[in-house]
């Protein structure tokens, strides 16, 4: 492949575009951090300055030690991890079935899964409330896990299917020739190969569950069982919008989902790619 002569104008334009995207993506997050470390009395007087004249970590200290923040954080972590694990496991099974089998009703099931992505989730919030209440499961984090898991299964299944599609069928067929059952072949041959796919799905579902607010508001009312986004809401209502504290809490909330996301995003691209190439 011949190397095109570098054109300085084009390269300058490219780096300008890269810088533009980076600024657009990060500036709001920077602003969040800036407000979190600005002392309360300066938030409004220096509101539009790019950097405050003095810094404080009081907001973080208050949030961590004088509010229920850590409890909310723990609840959210429990719900998000539980949802991510359950969804990934179930979606892996379903994705495997879609990828490897041709069976009766496959098209119908795929169509139903697509439809679940189409209707407004708000529509089922009242029926779900009634069902969960009739099981006496209101205010339980387990009910949240079950509901979130169901919501995330369709997309996670399509994602997992594309990962399985990227793994050649010959591999497990060879293992089955050698006397493995299909399940053994799946566990010993396919599972290790699909680890990046599992990682991507885990991360994707984790971030989705981490930021869900609506159903949590509906199904949880007790303070002890509140998830993190609801906790942020209490900062709004209880302390008549204590912005500094809320932004500090927001910065802390960003940490797990961002860590997860930075870890998985290249697998996400890779997974979608391999599915598209070989599928």
């Amino acid at each position: 492949m011949s190397i095109a002569r570098p054109r300085p104008l084009l390269i300058a334009g490219k780096y300008a575009a890269l810088l533009g995207y980076l600024t657009f993506a990060l500036f709001p997050l920077y602003w969040l951090l800036k407000i979190a470390i600005t002392p309360d009395q300066l938030i409004f007087t220096e509101g539009t300055q790019l950097w405050p004249s003095s810094l404080t970590f009081d907001n973080f200290r208050t949030v961590l030690f004088q509010t229920d923040f850590l409890a909310y954080f723990g609840n959210s972590l429990y719900v998000s991890l539980g949802t991510a694990a359950a969804t990934t496991l179930i979606a892996a099974g379903a994705g495997y079935a879609f990828s490897r089998f041709d069976f009766g009703g496959k098209k119908i099931i795929i169509a139903v899964m697509l439809i679940t992505q189409m209707f407004p989730l708000l529509m089922i919030i009242a029926p779900i409330y009634k069902i969960v209440a009739s099981f006496g499961m209101l205010n339980s984090l387990t009910s949240l896990i079950v509901v979130y898991t169901a919501f995330n299964i369709p997309f996670a299944t399509f994602l997992m299917q594309s990962f399985f599609d990227g793994i050649p069928k010959d591999l497990e067929e060879a293992a089955m020739m050698d006397g493995c059952s299909r399940f053994q072949a799946l566990r010993k041959v396919i599972f290790p190969l699909t680890l990046p796919g599992l990682g991507a799905t885990l991360g994707f579902v984790f971030t989705a569950a981490w930021s869900e607010l609506l159903f949590a508001l509906m199904l949880i009312s007790k303070n002890e069982a509140m998830t993190f986004p609801m906790g942020l809401l209490t900062f709004v209502s209880k302390f008549s919008v204590d912005w500094g504290q809320m932004m500090a809490a927001g910065v802390l909330a960003l940490i797990p989902s961002c860590l997860f996301f930075i870890f998985i995003q290249r697998y996400l691209v890779q997974g979608l790619t391999s599915g598209a190439v070989k599928g």
Binding site: L22, L26, P28, L29, I35, G250, L254, C258, F261
Partner: peptide
């Protein structure tokens, strides 16, 4: 670069809504 530009997708919706509301507010947003 890729990790950083993809970051907004990971921000909880409620939080990004508030952040942008803040940015559009002339008293404290630029």
């Amino acid at each position: 670069f890729q990790a950083l530009v993809f970051l907004p997708w990971a921000v909880p919706t409620f939080l990004s809504a508030l952040t942008w509301a803040w940015l559009f507010n002339p008293v404290i947003g630029p």
